[in-house]
C-alpha cells in the first residue's frame, strides 16, 4: 500500500470539503474493495476520507412507500434489519449473500454502489426495484446512476448519502457465484408489481442491465419456462477466465427462471 493522508470527519459537509480540497482523495466506506486494491498497489489515493463517523450516512428506516438505507449501512445490517426483511425481503437476502460474513460486517451499500463492480449484487436489485440514490446534491434514479463498468453518474467529490428502496413483497434474487471470488458470475433480480415485471441482470460483464424483453414477455403472461425463447442481446455479455459470454447468457436465463420460482411470487 502506498502512503496516504487520513481524516475522519464527523459531518457530511466536512467530508465533502476534504474531498473537494484534493482531487486525488478518495472516500473510504467499508474498505472491503478499496483496501485490497490499494494493497495490490493498483490505487494510490493521496488521502482517505473515512466516512465511518459521518452521521448523515447512517440509518435504516421505513420511509413512505418503502425504505431508506444510509450509505454507510453494512451488508450485514441490511440483511438483518427487521424493516428490510419485512418490506424488501429479497433485498435482505441479497445483502446476506454478498461476500462472506466478515466482509458483510464491514462492506457498505454506499461503497458497493459507488464502485459499481459489474459482478456486484446490489446494482441488480436497485435497478430492478427502481430505487433512487440520494447523493449530497441530488437524487438519481438507479437507471441513471449506473453508467457502465465501474462507472456511475457520481461527480468527483460527490457522495452517496442514502438509497430509497420501494417496498417489494414480490421479488427474488438468484446468484450463481464465481467459484473463487464468489462474486456473481451471473445474478438476476426479478420484481413483480402492479405495474408489471422488472428484471435486472448483473455479472454479464458489461455492467448491470434490465432485460426488457423478458419483462415484456412476463407481462404478457409468459412463465420462467418460456424465457428460453425470449431475445437476450449477446452484446451484453463478455467472457473471461471464469465463464464464456454464451455461458453467462445461458445462466442469466436460468437465474431469472429460478427467481420466478421463488415462493415470493406464489401469491
Amino acid at each position: 500500500m502506498h502512503a496516504f493522508a487520513y481524516c475522519r470527519p464527523a459531518a457530511l459537509a466536512d467530508a465533502l470539503r476534504e474531498l473537494a480540497a484534493d482531487a486525488e482523495a478518495r472516500p473510504l466506506a467499508g474498505g472491503q474493495t478499496l483496501l485490497p486494491v490499494m494493497r495490490a498497489r493498483l490505487a494510490a489515493p493521496s488521502r482517505l476520507v473515512d466516512l465511518a463517523r459521518v452521521r448523515e450516512l447512517t440509518g435504516i428506516a421505513a420511509a413512505p412507500g418503502g425504505l431508506r438505507l444510509g450509505a454507510m449501512e453494512t451488508h450485514a445490517a441490511i440483511a438483518e434489519h427487521p424493516a428490510v426483511k419485512r418490506l424488501a425481503p429479497a433485498l435482505a437476502r441479497l445483502a446476506g449473500g454478498i461476500g462472506d460474513p466478515q466482509v458483510r460486517n464491514r462492506g457498505t451499500i454506499g461503497g458497493s454502489l459507488a464502485n459499481n463492480d459489474p459482478a456486484a449484487c446490489y446494482p441488480a436489485a436497485l435497478l430492478a426495484l427502481g430505487a433512487a440514490i440520494e447523493t449530497d446534491r441530488r437524487t438519481l434514479a438507479a437507471e441513471d446512476f449506473f453508467t457502465g463498468l465501474f462507472a456511475t453518474a457520481l461527480a468527483p467529490g460527490e457522495l452517496v448519502v442514502a438509497v430509497q428502496v420501494p417496498a417489494a413483497p414480490a421479488a427474488a434474487y438468484v446468484k450463481f457465484p464465481q467459484p473463487a471470488s464468489r462474486f456473481a458470475l451471473v445474478g438476476a433480480f426479478v420484481l413483480r408489481t402492479e405495474a408489471g415485471y422488472r428484471v435486472a441482470i448483473t455479472g454479464g460483464g458489461m455492467g448491470v442491465f434490465r432485460w426488457t424483453e423478458a419483462e415484456a414477455a412476463l407481462d404478457s403472461g409468459a412463465t420462467g419456462a418460456d424465457l428460453a425463447g425470449v431475445p437476450l442481446d449477446p452484446e451484453l455479455f463478455t467472457g473471461d477466465l471464469h465463464a464464456s459470454a454464451r455461458y453467462r447468457r445461458a445462466l442469466a436465463r436460468v437465474a431469472v427462471a429460478r427467481a420466478l420460482a421463488d415462493p415470493a411470487f406464489a401469491a
Partner: peptide, 11 residues
C-alpha cells in the same frame, strides 16, 4: 468478526 487485513488500524 472482521478481517483485520482489510481494515486500517486507525479505523
Amino acid at each position: 468478526a472482521v478481517k483485520s487485513c482489510t481494515m486500517l488500524a486507525v479505523q
